[in-house]
Computed example of a mutant assay.
Amino acid sequence: MKHTKNKHITHLICDCDGVLLDSESIALTVLHRQLASYLPHSVVQGNGQTELALHSAISERLGMMTNQLLDEISAQFDLGLLAPDYSLINMVVSRACSEEVTAVPGVIEVLATIPLPKAVASNSSLQRIDAGLRRCGLLELFEGHIHSGHDMGTPKPAPDVYLAAAAGFKAPPQQCIAIDDSVTGVRSAVAAGIRVFGFTGVAHDRDQATERLLAAGAELVFHDMQQLPRLLAA
């Protein structure tokens, strides 16, 4: 873990999926199952290397808005996805995440001990964020301060959703700290001028995720929510 100098922080901004909600593994499983069905039959029946590459490619892009992820995966694997495919995949992923999601272990108890005002800055839609937070008993902690890059039309890695969260507090970005689990999200916070801690507690490959988040600009990476109060106090 990399340490940082003390600076005055007054507000906390959290990504949603993978930080508050343990939905990344659900999304990864559903996306892989859906997209693998578009691979040529000969590839699926082969040595499995393409399916492994597909799984890895999806994992690396979690945190992107789903349509952007689908654009890149379709191009990389020549899947030929059409508009109805996008609609179907989005619907299946959203439904699975809404119906199966659980809170990240320890996050409810930890956030209750942190006295900073809190906001959400996510690439998911407001409807999906609201449903997930409500299901997991987290909505009240963030109500009135939930921001969606999807609904703004300028998703991460653009800085807009993090800037909107800071503006919602009427706080300078430099006095905020972000918690994000994806390269896309870390780059967004950095571009907004907001310090960012990377979180890998529910990552598919924790070591690889740590390297990527640090390379993207996270000033430290942690894997257990119980560590967060101490890190913020430091």
Rank of each mutant, 00 (worst) to 15 (best):
P159V: 11
A121Y: 10
P84D: 11
V104C: 03
S98K: 10
C136T: 15
Y86W: 15
G153T: 12
P157M: 10
N123C: 03
A75G: 11
P159D: 10
T154Q: 13
A121I: 09
Q68P: 00
G106D: 12
T184D: 03
P159G: 10
V92S: 05
D181S: 10
H145L: 00
L82N: 05
G168Q: 09
S188E: 08
P159S: 13
L69A: 06
N90Q: 13
P84G: 10
G144K: 14
E99I: 02
S74H: 14
Q175M: 07
V110D: 00
S87Y: 13
M91S: 12
H150S: 06
A83N: 09
A164Y: 03
S87T: 14
P157T: 12
G106K: 14
Q68I: 12
R135Q: 14
A131F: 11
A165F: 00
V186M: 04
S87I: 13
I108F: 00
L79G: 05
L141T: 07
S124D: 09
A171L: 06
S182F: 04
A83K: 11
S148C: 03
G185N: 10
L116M: 07
V101M: 04
A189V: 09
D130C: 11
E143G: 04
E99T: 06
N90V: 08
I146G: 01
Q175H: 13
T184Y: 08
L141D: 06
L111N: 01
Y86I: 09
L163G: 02
D180C: 01
I108C: 05
L163T: 05
S125M: 06
R187W: 05
I146H: 09
L70M: 11
G153Y: 12
A167M: 08
D85P: 02
L82I: 13
A158S: 11
A131D: 13
